[in-house]
Amino acid sequence: MASPRPAMTTYAYPKIFLYRRLVQAKLFIDAHYARPIDLDNIADEAYSSKFHFIRQFKSIYRRTPHQYLISVRTEKAKILLKDGMAVSEVCYAVGFESLSSFSGLFKRLYGITPLAYSKQQQHVKAQIKETPLRFIPGCFAHKSGWL
């Protein structure tokens, strides 16, 4: 008598291995953005065709791996600038190799230079510290008994 068919315990869907490779590539960029990343190597490990990898990555994340890496770096830069780190330190901390290219790229993406953004954020932080209730909606503050 044939043994009963084992219950299917692993969830599967079409192209599951393709998805897992692409997600691993994305998570690799998320984790190692601060270092020089050779995107060709990621493509080699994930696929035999770099072109195919880029196309698939873009179809999921709306950006090429390179564009995605740049966006991770600049978003991290915003966080560090907000924390008060100096612009030159931020530039290298997020993986850029040239201060001028970092500043130019930042300005192009966000319409403000890193230095101006940093000053703006420090000003907001100082205001929050000084007058926090200006930043908390009245309904919440009122219910909490602060007004």
Binding site: Y19, R20, V23, Q24, K26, S59, I60
Partner: peptide, 13 residues
């Protein structure tokens, strides 16, 4: 999300 399988795999990871 744009792609649920990619998002599912990422969040699970």
């Amino acid at each position: 999300c744009d792609d649920i399988y990619a998002t599912y795999e990422e969040l699970k990871a």
